[in-house]
Design a protein around this nucleic acid. Sequence first.
DNA 1: CTGTTAGCGCTTTCAT
DNA 2: ATGAAAGCGCTAACAG
Lengths: 333, 333
Amino acid sequence: MVRMADVARAAGVSVMTVSNVLNERLPVGESTRARVMEAVEALGYEVNLTARHLRAGRTDTVAFVVPSFHDYFGELADQVAPLVEAEGRHLVLERTSANAEQEMEALSVARLRIYDGVLLSVAGLDLETLARVRTAKPIVLLGERDVPEHFNHVRLANESGAHLATAHMIERGSRRILALGCSPDATHMMTDRRVGWENACHEAGLAADPAYVVPVSDYTSLGGREAMLKVIASGLPFDGVFAVTDIVALGALSALADSGLRVPGDVQLAGFDNLDMSRFIPPGITSVDVNREGVAEAAVGLLHRQMSGWTGPAEHVVAPVRLVVRGSTRGGA
Amino acid sequence: MVRMADVARAAGVSVMTVSNVLNERLPVGESTRARVMEAVEALGYEVNLTARHLRAGRTDTVAFVVPSFHDYFGELADQVAPLVEAEGRHLVLERTSANAEQEMEALSVARLRIYDGVLLSVAGLDLETLARVRTAKPIVLLGERDVPEHFNHVRLANESGAHLATAHMIERGSRRILALGCSPDATHMMTDRRVGWENACHEAGLAADPAYVVPVSDYTSLGGREAMLKVIASGLPFDGVFAVTDIVALGALSALADSGLRVPGDVQLAGFDNLDMSRFIPPGITSVDVNREGVAEAAVGLLHRQMSGWTGPAEHVVAPVRLVVRGSTRGGA
DNA sequence: CTGTTAGCGCTTTCAT
DNA sequence: ATGAAAGCGCTAACAG
């Protein structure tokens, strides 16, 4: 491990001169500078950032802590990265692995402290853990659940989005719409989307029959597919499906296709998140667009404000959504 | 910023006693321990990991450096994470943002040094940058291109996979198969997949006409879709498409559907990567499965071996692939 | 069981 | 223009 002192010795100067050459802080004589650079090359020296970070009291790094790396969060992270980098900081992603059996708790508050700022996705994070996070560190919460007042928070207009999607399918002729992936449980994170579905049904004079609220074992395409197959097998009549996420919607689409039900002819289908793939999957999945760029901008904006020393009250942003109509609902293409 | 010294003062003990309590290293008297814990709680103390890292000379953290967070790399990262965590280390993802206009070069060698080990995806990384990476740090390269001998490297059996997919479609009746997303350029990273396609064609006594090698503007579904539409508009006759990635294949599927071409009736379609979605997109996309779990295990295994002090010669793993047949090719369901 | 000393590698401050 | 000293917050090693 080559230290700055090694370079200094090789070049016959003090460590401070090496530091000044490398950081271009104080002016250094041309010949000295040349000798230093030569020694740096010869020894293959690279600065030890850990030491610099300790000394500086900051790491110039922002963490985005997500429940998993794929799909929605991966796409969101790609939006966040350039915004963070534009402020001259690095972005790293970490998982709330929440592997309780592991002795290592991934989301220790201490770990968050190594970052200058943290974007924390609250999906799959128990509120107790969240309560322990009382830190002065700039932090912005991201996700669809209620959080303590004092946190900055960006969430989606879930109810409004679910309402849009459901009302659209009703307008296009559906009368019995499943709420796939919603839960009857009031404390559940997908509650807002179920409420949006309910309201849309009621406003159209339709029943929001609890039998049409169909939970999924997990928020994957497989989970959506299996729940959908079960409904089909049960004989429950339906002519529309509102899926809580595009991933779940894809599973539903798969099940419908295998069962010989045509989309949108027999059943209309709409999802939530507007993932890139939803545009391309025939016949195109109608979806609630969550404006990932806007969410990323809002979150990074709040974070940056905190990192700049702002100490005003926390803000709670509800990012607007819009419906993108495609072929999986009638009139979509 | 609460320091350990603050806790020590509040509890009326020395900093070492605080350290011993928190790390459970040396035994501490029960009453002392209680007072320390009380002070920790009262002050809301959290250990400064940067200082600990400097002192310890390691960070217990592994970085996976990827070109982008979504799709293939997001899914791979989810496989890598538990393997790294099983060894008691944290995993973080970083992007090779390669934003040249930014003054910040994301992939400075110094930055890699803050990690105990690095998994580095070489996709979208110029060889020059790679050559600069002469470090003692444990590092494993990941991706489809040639790299200097002295690096540990995990890549896929690209040629074999492309051959499998192409031969399968030929066997099922296709005679004019497009190589979508491949490039005629020999130095290109998708060369191996083009060669596999060529060989499969030749072995079946078919021409591997360069006109059937269709590049894409970028490896997205949109890129695949537009290239596909252009081919259709050109009138070039074809009855099969081998797409270099599932993402590109999805774009092709979209274009085929919009053009009234049935899959697999008029055109068979196969992709590469076997993303989760490919199983669910009707009629199911036949794809080359790259065994992400195996790739993750091989890469993390090599990395762990290096981190344990192994100094033998570098290994170059070629991960085997297999074809997963689905509805987008005949006989798939 | 508890305290003191030293030092991880770097940079801020002050002196020359 | 260059160098010496001090210290960021922590913990290994040793002393008591």
